[in-house]
Nucleic acid binder design. Structure first.
Lengths: 170, 170
DNA sequence: CTTGAAAAATGGCCCGA
DNA sequence: TCGGGCCATTTTTCAAG
């Protein structure tokens, strides 16, 4: 399941695929400096061991009519485990909520919401989110624009065989 | 450049590629109910017209040793256009900052930062972020876990030829 | 790593609404 | 005329040597 270490080639592959998820295996191999078959084996291994969790097309929200990104900080009345899970389940049922992060400290959750316009967001806010029994307060901050949007994590391409995770997933 | 409308087939393709960015063109075609060549033509058109901005592998942060996600709310002293751009340029040079959103209202920027541990985050915070001339205040909220992480936008797969963006990109 | 067969991508051409 | 389907060639994938 979990690999011991990633060498420079693995990290090159991860970095390339993070940057261009449809890169051909042969190009991947060229850039990594090995031939195609071993490169493909590495990719499969990275997928199966969980380093690569999936591949996704990046779709332009605005083109699809989603003009508004809002970050909502949600405080709950009860933080009992059952109630937290309950809220997360609710969140999963709302397609407008694209990300939900549980936070340490005063605010309990940070939600990233994408909506067609402020009107639909407000409708979601008043008819769905604040309607929840356990929601104490919501503070919304509308995003004006995303000036940086990197994918995944910074990957060190140097030769060092450094820090890789060795524990459980999630 | 910009397409008139997306039909059900285009939306199916977008949805499928958003979900699995490495889906084969033939499978994509099967699922969309057309043959491979016209399907590929549609994909290329979606790419060239900007509906699809790229493809990315989703890499597990924890496996790569990035155990900590922090959201930082940054207020600037000066919001003059030059200073805003200046800050965004700085942000672009920090690999730990994965996303930067300019916000409406009191807090100026929301940064999503990924770090190996709290120690490295604190180091970044004190030696980089708060060292910036124009940074007035930073409020950090550590993420405990991401309970939801969807990619892109909700895509309506019904037959309606509804709302598609018709303006400029960014 | 190299080879080679199977599958996918992709361009050309013809067809129907 | 704009797409879609069929066919053929090139490229890629991927198992076996």
């Amino acid at each position: 399941m979990r690999r011991t270490k990633l060498d420079r080639i693995d990290r090159q592959i991860l970095s390339d695929l993070q940057d261009n998820g449809r890169m051909t295996n042969v190009e991947l191999a060229q850039r990594a400096g090995i031939s195609a078959p071993p490169c493909l084996r590495r990719v499969r291994a990275l997928e199966e061991s969980g380093y690569i969790k999936g591949y996704h097309a990046e779709v332009d929200e605005k083109f699809l009519g989603y003009g508004v990104t809002v970050f909502a900080f949600v405080g709950l009345k009860s933080q009992a485990k059952t109630d937290l899970v309950n809220f997360e389940d609710k969140v999963n049922g709302w397609p407008l909520v694209r990300e939900c992060h549980m936070l340490q400290g005063e605010t309990d959750f940070l939600l990233k919401i994408v909506a067609r316009d402020m009107e639909s967001y407000n409708k979601f806010l008043t008819e769905e989110l604040t309607e929840e029994e356990n929601v104490a307060h919501v503070r919304s901050a509308q995003g004006i624009h995303a000036s940086k949007r990197s994918f995944g994590v910074p990957i060190d391409l140097s030769d060092s065989d450094d820090a890789v995770y060795d524990g459980e997933s999630d």
